[in-house]
Nucleic acid binder design. Structure first.
Length: 899
RNA sequence: GGGCGCGUAGCUCAGCGGUAGAGCAUCGCCUUCACACGGCGGGGGUCACAGGUUCAAUCCCUGUCGCGCCCA
């Protein structure tokens, strides 16, 4: 077979992925007796393409799912995509625009045909890209939020919630996106800081010529719709004006001056204009004071006068209906300029201050949102939120890291009615039909609605279906059960609901996690998942958020092309600590690619040295300390990795595996193995080393497989640990029985320290690596002596020793010395050792030991410490002190020998 | 304004009551028959600051400063 010098991901990855997929390795098994383990993929937008955020979240999920699958769980990782209402509609509209077509000309049905056509042609991008990452999703189960089954679930939920009074129609202010011309939910609004002005406007007091009440506003254009001025009830400045009227400039309407705690005496002038139809706070004031609520902006945010036409009144020097009529149809920002100019002309502007304020923008359309009074469908989220809050409080669902529960609670406890209707075409059409008189019939289909209408009217009536569609997140909220076949009672629903863990970013806790909790509990009677693992954001190397405008976007597919999916995945694991954002650049991935190569080369070494899989090998029979030590270290690494994964500590999982492979297996074990495998070595020992090397390499491949599936599978297959593409289905390593691991650890620890000591001294003495020198041991215990004897070949090789022996008599002149436990290591380096420098060096060593000893001594001489600290801590310190004192003695003796 | 998180080696980050760690970078030596995407060795930190609790604080508490995010 002979492995190439480096692993070739571009060739291996597609081949292995196809192999896994073809063998059904990704499939769950509903008929299995195994304990299920379920992760629902956060369905990416069907318009999406793989970005670093996806790479992070799906690497984490795939690592978990592969690990649990190896542990013998019946793993379901449910794939699918989201129809992404607004995003998809925008993509297709843009496409049509390039052909010079407007969707309105095309008509709803034709347009939807085009969207489906687009989906068929281009909707598979993201799922293809997920495969390149190595994602072991159960593809035959792939779902789409608009497919028949999921649409059925949506209708079922809508109709049920409606019948329970939890979905209803309401006329109230809604966030309106004038660009997309649809209502959006509170969550789809993001506040952006905008530098603008604060206009102080004079509203004349009725019946008192020359007296004004000055209101401060950031939105002068909405004054056309003002129906009151509000002041704080305790504000002395305006006390006499409450209950009287102001004349609304330009319009000429009489507006009452009302007392309401909404106005803040500290802010502006303490008096605020009230436009109930275009501001959420003003709407509240309007309701409390029973004010008219005329809309003066239309759905495109242009001035419309229909609702104020009849109040327009000419007032000399104050209001001019003709001016106002001239504003009809003008854009809100145009109108603002014109209105301010006119007010200035009328000397009704007191002053204009520069002002920075938070302006709500639509997160998709990117333009300022306009609060608009419309009738929409709402979901009573407050009722649904209650059991969801309780579920987290009681620990039925746990957030990791736990602090995110606070975020969840804060939002859920103050949840607002959820506006679920959207004035779009692409999405789940609302299952509501209207009779000629506007009566609403909510039903799962037109026939059922007709039946309801018949019962209501006593005769058949023509019904018209609601034009609107549902918020995309409405169907996403059902994802944990709708994907399993609900509302049908399938085996999958019984078996895979609730899921085990939901993996996602904090940015969609509200959008998605909270809503799945609400819907899951309401319809399934149980939470949708036991654990919510919240990971951070991917940022660039300097910690900046990635964005198109900054030009700092890193494309995961390019990283995969350059370094392989394993390198990218391992990097992500290594950098994913709890509650931390992931700062990632190409150089980090390149660094971890070295680890992939290191593993590959370790395997090459094995191959070259005739290390082959030996299925008959029983680790419990290993006799050599080297092998027992390695097996023990391997047990530790696997145990630590399991604990780390259990706790979602991907960073620790990566670190433990990395250390074990690189430091333990490669740097020490394989180096120690070299003399044991050399020509002329004991063949029985060599056979045991080979068997152990192969056994532990197998453990390593299994250990790393969840993070680095490709290279591990390739090596697994090439070495014949199992059938081709079988590693994915192999069991997670179990601890091996190791005979007297304690003794093996002690022995190898001693050899490693001895070699380290010799290397260190030689380096400091500038002994060229090519120059061997003797290693002599003085005052060595019989145990140390026999270890030196047993490990002579390894010490020769790794410490460049020409010989290793005990020293009884005089120390050769010009020797360097170092202390190892009770023994002193002597390196005769005649001509290389500067006696003075050596004295200084040993002196420093002694000082270091003395310093440590002083610190410990100080502690121990503190009566409170000895009295109050736990006995084992005191004892440990006593032992440390003894150790330092012994070391000082040896160093003293070494110094004396130099004289 | 409210809430959350973070300030530990040049960089990225672990550790979170009892001897300050890793990776990368850096410096020196080494092209030794798996690997220069490598090997060996070294240097580098008053753990943001100030108080407090404790026998003992990087770790717990309080405050201050700086940075970031979320909500208003």
């Amino acid at each position: 077979m002979t492995l190439d010098k480096t692993f070739a991901p571009a060739e291996a990855e597609p081949r292995l992925y196809e192999g896994w997929e073809a063998s059904g390795a990704f499939a769950c098994d509903p008929m299995s007796n195994a304990d299920p383990f379920t992760i629902m993929i956060p369905p990416p937008n069907v318009t999406g393409s793989l970005h670093m955020g996806h790479a992070l979240t799906f690497t984490v999920q795939d690592t978990l799912i592969r690990w649990r699958r190896m542990q013998g769980r019946d793993a379901l990782w449910q794939p699918g995509t989201d129809h992404a209402g607004i995003a998809t509609q925008m993509v297709v509209e843009r496409l049509l625009a390039s052909e010079g077509i407007d969707r309105r000309d095309l008509g709803r049905d034709k347009f939807l045909e085009r969207v489906w056509q687009w989906k068929a042609e281009s909707g598979g991008t993201i799922t293809r890209q997920l495969r390149r990452l190595g994602s072991s999703l159960d593809w035959p189960r792939e779902r789409f939020t608009m497919d028949d089954g999921l649409s059925e679930a949506v209708r079922e939920v809508f109709v049920t919630l409606h019948s329970q009074g939890l979905i209803y129609r309401d006329r109230r202010l809604v966030n309106w996106d004038p660009k997309l011309q649809t209502a959006i939910s509170d969550l789809e609004v993001e506040n952006r800081e905008v530098r603008g002005s604060l206009w102080h406007l004079r509203y004349p007091i009725e019946g008192e010529p020359g007296r004004f009440i000055v209101v401060a506003t950031t939105r002068p254009e909405t004054m056309l719709g003002d129906t009151a001025v509000a002041v704080h009830p305790n504000d002395e400045r305006y006390r006499d004006l409450v209950g009287r009227f102001a004349i609304l400039p330009l319009v000429g309407r009489r507006v009452p001056i009302v007392a309401d705690t909404y106005s803040d005496p500290e802010k502006g002038t303490g008096a605020v204009k009230i436009t109930p139809a275009h501001d959420f706070n003003d709407f509240g004031v309007g309701q409390r004071h029973d004010l008219p609520m005329p809309s003066i902006l239309d759905k495109q945010a242009r001035v419309t006068l229909a609702e104020i036409a009849d109040v327009l009144t000419a007032v000399d020097g104050i209001a001019d209906p003709d001016f106002v009529r001239g504003l009809d149809g003008r854009d809100r920002f145009d109108a603002r300029k014109a209105i301010v100019a006119e007010l200035e002309r009328l000397e009704l502007v007191e002053k204009i201050e520069p002002h920075t304020n938070q302006v709500p923008h639509g997160d998709r359309g990117g333009v300022p949102v306009e609060p608009l009074l419309t009738t929409q469908w709402y979901c009573n989220a407050a009722v649904l939120a209650k059991p969801a809050i309780e579920a987290v409080e009681s620990g039925k669902t746990v957030f990791v890291p736990k602090q995110w529960e606070n975020t969840f609670f804060a939002w859920m406890r103050d949840i607002q009615p959820w506006c679920i209707s959207r004035q779009l075409w692409w999405g789940h059409r609302i299952p509501a039909w209207y009779g000629p008189d506007g009566e609403v019939f909510v039903a799962k289909d037109a026939d059922s609605a007709a039946t309801l209408a018949l019962a209501h009217y006593g005769h058949a009536e023509t019904l018209v279906q609601d034009e609107d569609v549902l918020d995309t997140w409405f169907s996403s909220a059902l994802w944990p059960f709708s994907t399993l076949g609900w509302p049908e009672r399938t085996r999958e629903v019984d078996r895979y609901y609730p899921g085990d863990v939901l993996v996602t970013g904090f940015d969609i806790i509200f959008f998605w996690v909270a809503r799945m909790m609400m819907m899951g509990i309401h319809f399934m009677g149980d939470v949708p998942f036991r654990t919510v693992y919240i990971h951070g954001l991917v940022r660039d190397e300097r910690g900046q958020k990635m964005s198109k405008s900054k030009g700092n976007i890193i494309d995961p597919l390019e990283l995969i092309d350059s370094f392989g999916a394993d390198a990218l995945r391992f990097t992500i694991c290594a950098l994913t600590g709890p509650g931390r954002d992931v700062k990632l650049g190409a150089s980090r991935v390149q660094d971890y690619r070295s680890f992939v190569t290191k593993l590959w080369n370790a395997a090459r070494f094995c191959e070259i040295n005739g290390i082959v899989v030996n299925k008959d090998f029983d680790p419990a029979t290993a006799r050599l300390p080297l092998n027992r030590w390695l097996l023990d270290a391997s047990n530790t690494a696997v145990a630590e990795a399991s604990v780390a994964l259990e706790a979602y500590r991907f960073d620790e999982y990566a670190a433990t595996s990395y250390r074990f492979v690189w430091n333990t297996y490669c740097d020490w074990f394989l180096e120690f193995a070299k003399p044991a495998l050399a020509a002329g070595a004991d063949p029985v020992a060599a056979a045991e080393v080979r068997a152990t090397a192969a056994h532990v390499l197998g453990t390593i491949l299994r250990l790393l497989h969840p993070a680095m599936p490709f290279v591990t599978e390739e090596l697994w297959d090439r070495f014949g640990y199992g059938e081709v593409c079988s590693l994915i289905g192999t069991s997670w390593p179990q601890p091996d029985a190791v005979d007297d691991a304690q003794a093996a650890r002690a022995e190898l620890d001693w050899v490693v320290r001895l070699i380290g000591l010799v290397r260190s001294v030689r380096n400091e003495m500038n002994v060229p690596p090519g120059t061997p020198a003797p290693v002599l041991l003085r005052d060595a215990s019989p145990e140390a002596a026999s270890r030196a004897e047993r490990w002579i070949d390894a010490i020769r090789r790794l410490a460049r020793a020409s010989e290793v022996r005990l020293l009884d008599g005089e120390m050769p002149k010009g020797s360097a010395q170092a202390v190892l436990d009770e023994a002193t290591v002597i390196l005769p380096l005649a001509g290389l050792v500067d006696l003075d420098a050596e004295r200084v060096r040993l002196g420093k060593e002694r000082e270091k030991a003395a310093g440590e000893a002083r610190k410990v001594q100080q502690k121990l001489s503190n009566a409170d410490f000895v009295k109050r600290a736990p006995e084992d801590v005191v004892e440990e310190n006593r032992e440390r002190l003894a150790g330092y004192e012994r070391e000082m003695e040896r160093l003293e003796a070494a110094l004396a020998r130099l004289a």
